[in-house]
């Protein structure tokens, strides 16, 4: 699977890249919201882990941009956040086209389960 991780914390992107690469995925990462959005718009991913609180361009702004560009459904977006976003706020985002939400910190097993769940989704239309 082609997986993109957007998170301003290099410790977290390094961890995810390492863990997911090990199990055989093609993993790319960006520690900048703007760069991450450019990458999403440029190419297609099978899964995107998206942090919300980022200094330059937040995950919510990326989601809004994708919604406006009509690209939110192109790649399954899983929020990966430590913020105290409430469940109902998450539900609003899911309505916009986000797939789901993982709350930091997360156990590696949970991460694998999520990747497994996404891989079993019917292939997204290009």
């Amino acid at each position: 699977m082609r997986i993109l991780i957007i998170d301003d914390s290099a410790d977290i992107t390094d961890l995810l890249v390492k863990v997911l690469t090990t199990v055989g995925h093609d993993v790319m990462s960006s520690d900048s919201g703007k760069d991450g959005l450019e990458m999403i718009l440029k190419e297609k991913f099978d899964l995107i882990f998206l942090d919300i609180a980022m200094p330059d361009f937040s995950g919510l702004e990326i989601i809004d941009s994708l919604v406006q560009a009509g690209r939110i459904k192109d790649s399954p977006v899983v929020l990966f956040t430590a913020s105290s976003i409430t469940d109902s706020e998450v539900n609003e985002l899911i309505k916009k086209g986000v797939h789901s939400c993982l709350r930091k910190p997360v156990r590696i097993e949970t991460l694998f389960e999520k990747v497994q769940e996404i891989s079993q989704l019917p292939a997204a239309k290009s």
Binding site: S9, D11, I12, D14, L15, L16, K18, V19, T22, V23, A53, A82, S83, S84, R103, K104, P105, V106, R107, I108, E109, L111
Partner: peptide
């Protein structure tokens, strides 16, 4: 909460990675 949970993420994650035997 955000600032505390963020550093916990790589800690717990790397623990899991270490315990997996296959990754590291």
């Amino acid at each position: 909460s955000h600032e505390l949970k963020t550093p916990l993420t790589p800690i717990i994650g790397w623990c899991g990675a270490l315990k997996s035997n296959t990754i590291l």
